[in-house]
Write a protein that binds this DNA or RNA. Structure first.
Length: 932
RNA sequence: GCCCAGAUGGCGGAAUUGGUAGACGCGCUAGACUCAAAAUCUGGUUCUCGCAAGGGAGUGCAGGUUCGAUUCCUGUUCUGGGCACCA
């Protein structure tokens, strides 16, 4: 009997399905374990081999925990709202709901083939009204809450209103606009509109104004990645910044708790660092400078108040409101021109710009301590959104300021003496200050406090904690997203009541933008007649809480029953890509904290542990066409053109005449192309001619790049599952390398894993003899192999080192084959260990052995030390750090005994010659090093 | 530009706490079985000098710490990811 994976996999997938083997209960005596994948956006391109990498890893872990006796929640769903479906609708007229449903079906059938243990009864789809009803509900919770800085948590707006009625803004300073201050009486005298405008500045979900990428020609707002070099990706039309009404989440109020929470969760250090850099907490001071000859004042934020005497110029963001008022007549034209230039550029372009640009406003600020006049410049490297949108530039201590000063010939003041060499800035905090009036002689680190105190005493500055993070923009001028449950009347936003939810997306035929940059919903008369909000929520709305819905997916009375969320609690293991480092992972942490504050759930961090899977890149293949012909030259001949003198090879063309074209990887074996398949690929290649190499082969060029349809380097998991089976595919994906690491896909090695499974099969079945397993007692040698493997697989699985676990299975099967071990006692344990990795073959063999229950529910084999203990070790012996020989020595030998044995060894003697032994290093159980 | 990560044979990778660099697999290669092929099995395979025994070099690059460094430190190059409306 041979290993017929196709029948086996089909059979068990059907049986598991029928027996509801993956159904998970919310009631269990067992300890719980929650394994979650970042759910996919169901794109039209379907799954490629990169997607399942994380899913296989989590599936292995979930199954492993199940065998270890846990009640494991391992769900899957779809992040189904998003821009690509809407774009597809614009281009092809297919409604996003239709294309999304198709894509989901496609994803599902692809996922099913791989044999995951998802409980599909719990599937969520963020674009379904039954789901987004609760996204809208949570939005209303945020809308109806403010962040109480006294109690340090989100609370209902009614608490705030009561406080206003009693004591005005005395207790709760306004987070949105510090100029808002009033007494209780003033509050009571406000109109409803005035009151609501005030409250909007407190709400956790609030409406404000923000800049977007506006493309006049397309009449629409564009995403950052739809804008390339200041023009639209589609059509190449100019894009400018435009202020539009937007919804925001007041995530900045949670900045400190988001930082603090990082200490309580197991994310990689890199991930934590990325998040804390994003939050960007800094301590510094705001300093207000007078502008000479005007009544204007300029406030800057600096983290280095100690360098106040080294300020040689000010830099103000080009958007800064002060510019218009302080620019002198002489500089007006230049400033206007510069501002227009900057308007066309994205934040990222502005920061990445190596060219130093800027413009003098003609105005001067006055140093409050020494009266020195400081020129005020504008430059794109200062961003309006950070700090006060203005900086004081200290060229001797800041590299960018220094370069700016050099470029515009601004004289540089040295305040740190010899620590500044005049060639480059020195950002030290440990130099002693000079040229600094009352700070002279102070070490900079200490001077920071002295300067801040003085500034506060003089009333021209104050200490300030600043965050780089901004409030999260939470609206899109698009169709395919959750509608806001908000109605506008007389400029006041009124929330819909709970029983009006879900507010369903209306069906539309045209997906074009609405007037004045509004979204497509503005074109729907029935919608606008009810004065409903025309923006929709962004992609991350639904994904900010989906891990809660999986726990209780069919609940119609609540987003998730509190008892059930208390049972499942945090996600124990979350697997997904680093690309979500600062987006989804921060937003969902914030939502969780808000829901916790409001008493809806019992934990305030969603994910206990996060594992980042690497990206699988594509390996592209190229053909080389002689320009304007249908003649294709083998790649190795092209390489000779590049690296050698073409004349030597007497080739009738030069490298400049060759076009490099992507070719579909499916008809290339390694680098060798199937020329017939290529000819049949596209009609234009039917008449293709080939210049083959000396062996008569066409060799392709190759490069590693993103796996993408347009590069023809996409490898579809379906094909591999068909050819080798799901078990092979699963194990091969893991065998490629560490899950966390990015690596190019190469199908070549999959045969090796497939061979392993066949070899495993042959421990049970012989081609001729059929069943060959035996009931005999296992030998010590066999038990040693088994228990060594149990330990290794357990350790490796626990630390997510799935690639080394696969190799440990290979080693085990190789060794059992060498020992001709066919004993049930050993083989059964091996099967249970292998279930998480290759469930189908294990279930088949498990039943072949006569078991009637599912191996999925078996108990994990117990490791026993006694089978693997050794009494001696082959010690590596080095002389002066160079390995010279191995000597077998008992593990319980003492240092003296070891020294005697080693020094008596002939090879050791030879290398020591007659030199005296300086040092004898002996690390028990590890190695020996003799230093002479 | 800023933040984060990575770099080891022909290839994917292993070396878990500073202790035998290259486990396991692919590829290549020699052999067994076969009329032949496939499948399977056995051996070899970092580079280099050498008939061999054996020696030398070697983990992106340049330094450093250490009896000992792929592992720690400093600098540097290249590659990948993120940078707020892709998800």
């Amino acid at each position: 009997m041979e290993y017929n994976f196709r029948d086996i996999e089909k059979k068990w997938q059907k049986q598991w399905n029928e027996q509801k083997a993956y159904s998970v209960s919310n009631n269990s005596e067992k300890p719980k374990f929650y394994v979650l994948d970042m759910f996919p956006y169901p794109s039209g391109a379907g799954l490629h081999v990169g997607h399942p990498l994380g899913y296989i890893a989590s599936d292995i872990f979930a199954r492993f925990k199940r065998l270890k006796g846990y009640n494991v929640l391992h769900p899957m769903g779809y992040d189904a709202f998003g821009l690509p479906a809407e774009q597809y609708a614009i281009e092809h007229g297919i409604h996003p709901a239709v294309s999304t449903a198709q894509n989901i079906n496609n994803f599902r059938s692809q996922l099913d083939k791989i044999g995951f243990c998802f409980d599909w009864e719990r599937q969520v789809n963020t674009s379904e009204p039954s789901y987004y009803k609760w996204t809208q509900w949570i939005f209303l919770q945020l809308f109806n809450s403010f962040y109480n800085r006294q109690t340090n948590k989100a609370e209902n707006m009614s608490v705030l209103v009561q406080s206003f009625e009693k004591e005005g803004t005395q207790v709760h300073a306004c987070p949105g606009d510090s100029s808002i201050q009033f007494t209780a009486d003033e509050w009571k005298g406000y109109s409803e509109k005035q009151q609501q405008d005030v409250l909007m500045n407190y709400r956790l979900a609030y409406c404000g104004y923000g800049e977007v990428n506006w493309c006049e020609a397309l009449g629409t707002v564009l995403a950052n990645d739809e804008v390339i070099n200041g023009v639209s990706e589609r059509g190449g039309y100019p894009v400018v910044k435009k202020k539009l009404r937007q919804w925001y989440l007041r995530i900045t109020e949670y900045a400190d708790r988001l930082l603090e929470g990082l200490e309580r969760i197991e994310f990689s250090e890199a991930m934590k660092e990325m998040q804390s850099n994003w939050i960007g907490k800094s301590y510094g001071a705001e300093i207000t400078f007078d502008i000479a000859d005007t009544s204007s004042k300029l406030t800057v934020y600096t983290t280095r108040p100690d360098t106040i005497f080294g300020v040689d110029f000010m830099v103000v963001a080009p958007e800064h409101e002060l510019i218009e008022g302080i620019t002198t007549a002489a500089q007006k034209a230049a400033v206007e021109e510069y501002v227009t230039y900057v308007k066309s550029r994205s934040d990222r372009e502005r920061q990445a710009e190596k060219k130093i640009t800027g413009c003098f406003t003609g105005a001067y600020a006055v140093n409050p301590f020494n009266g020195k006049k400081i020129p005020v410049w504008i430059s794109e490297y200062v961003l309006a959104g950070y700090g006060t949108g203005a900086i004081m530039a200290v060229p001797c201590g800041d590299e960018r300021d220094f370069k700016f000063a050099k470029h515009f010939n601004i004289p540089v003041t040295n305040i740190i003496g010899a620590a500044f060499n005049g060639e480059e800035a020195n950002p030290t905090k440990d130099a002693t200050l000079e040229n600094s009036d009352f700070l002279n002689g102070e070490v900079m680190r200490d001077a920071m406090t002295i300067a801040s105190t003085k500034l506060e005493e003089m009333g021209i500055g104050k200490r300030k904690v600043n965050f780089r993070m901004r409030d999260a923009a939470f609206s899109r001028q698009r169709y395919w997203g959750e509608p806001f449950p908000i109605k506008w009347e007389n400029g006041i936003a009124y929330p819909l009541s709970e029983n009006e939810l879900p507010l369903e997306l209306p069906h539309i035929e045209k997906y074009g933008p609405g007037p004045e940059g509004e979204g497509p919903l503005a074109n729907v008369p029935a919608w606008t007649a009810k004065h409903l909000e025309t923006n929709t929520m962004p992609g991350y709305a639904g994904s900010s809480w989906y891990f809660l819905r999986y726990m209780d997916p069919h609940n119609e009375a609540a987003f998730c029953d509190r008892k059930i969320s208390d049972y499942w609690g945090q996600v124990d293991l979350y697997i997904g890509g680093t690309e979500h480092a600062v987006g989804h992972l921060l937003y969902s942490r914030m939502w969780t904290k808000a829901l916790y504050d409001l008493g809806h759930i019992g934990h305030d961090e969603p994910y206990k542990k996060l594992v980042n899977q690497g990206m699988i890149q594509g390996s592209s293949r190229f053909v080389y066409r002689l320009r304007t012909t249908s003649e294709f030259v083998s790649g190795d001949l092209i390489n000779e053109l590049v690296y050698n003198n073409p004349k030597e090879y007497n080739l009738p063309y030069s490298i400049e005449d060759v076009d490099r074209l992507h070719v579909d990887v499916s008809f290339v074996d390694g680098l060798e192309m199937n020329v017939d398949a290529f000819k049949n690929w596209k009609p234009e290649y039917e008449q293709a001619k080939f210049v083959l190499n000396a062996n008569g082969k066409y060799i392709c060029g190759s490069e590693t790049e993103k796996m993408s349809k347009r590069y023809f380097n996409v490898v579809n998991p379906d094909d591999l599952v068909n050819k080798y089976g799901a078990d092979t595919f699963r194990m091969y994906e893991m065998f490629l390398g560490p899950v966390e690491q990015s690596k190019p896909w190469d199908t070549k090695g999959i045969e090796g894993v497939h061979r392993f499974l066949k070899k495993l099969w042959r421990l049970f079945y012989d081609e001729v003899k059929g069943q060959i397993w035996k009931e005999e007692k296992a030998t010590d040698a066999e038990l040693k192999v088994l228990h060594k493997t149990i330990k290794k697989i357990e350790d490796d699985t626990e630390r997510f080192s799935f690639n080394t676990a696969v190799s440990a299975f290979m080693v085990c099967v190789n060794e059992l084959s060498d020992l001709k071990c066919h004993k049930r006692e050993v083989l059964e344990s091996l099967l249970i260990m292998l279930v998480p990795y290759a469930p189908h073959i294990c279930e088949e063999l498990w039943h072949a052995l006569g078991n009637t229950s599912l191996v999925l529910n078996a108990a994990y084999p117990r490791f026993e030390e006694k089978y693997v203990t050794e009494s001696a070790k082959d010690y590596p012996v080095s002389i002066n750090g160079k390995l010279r020989t191995n000597i077998n020595i008992a593990l319980d030998a003492s240092q003296d005994q070891v020294e005697a044995i080693v020094l008596a060894n002939d090879i050791v003697k030879k290398w020591i010659e007659d030199k005296p032994v300086k040092k004898f290093v002996f690390v028990k159980g590890k190695m020996i090093n003799v230093v002479v």
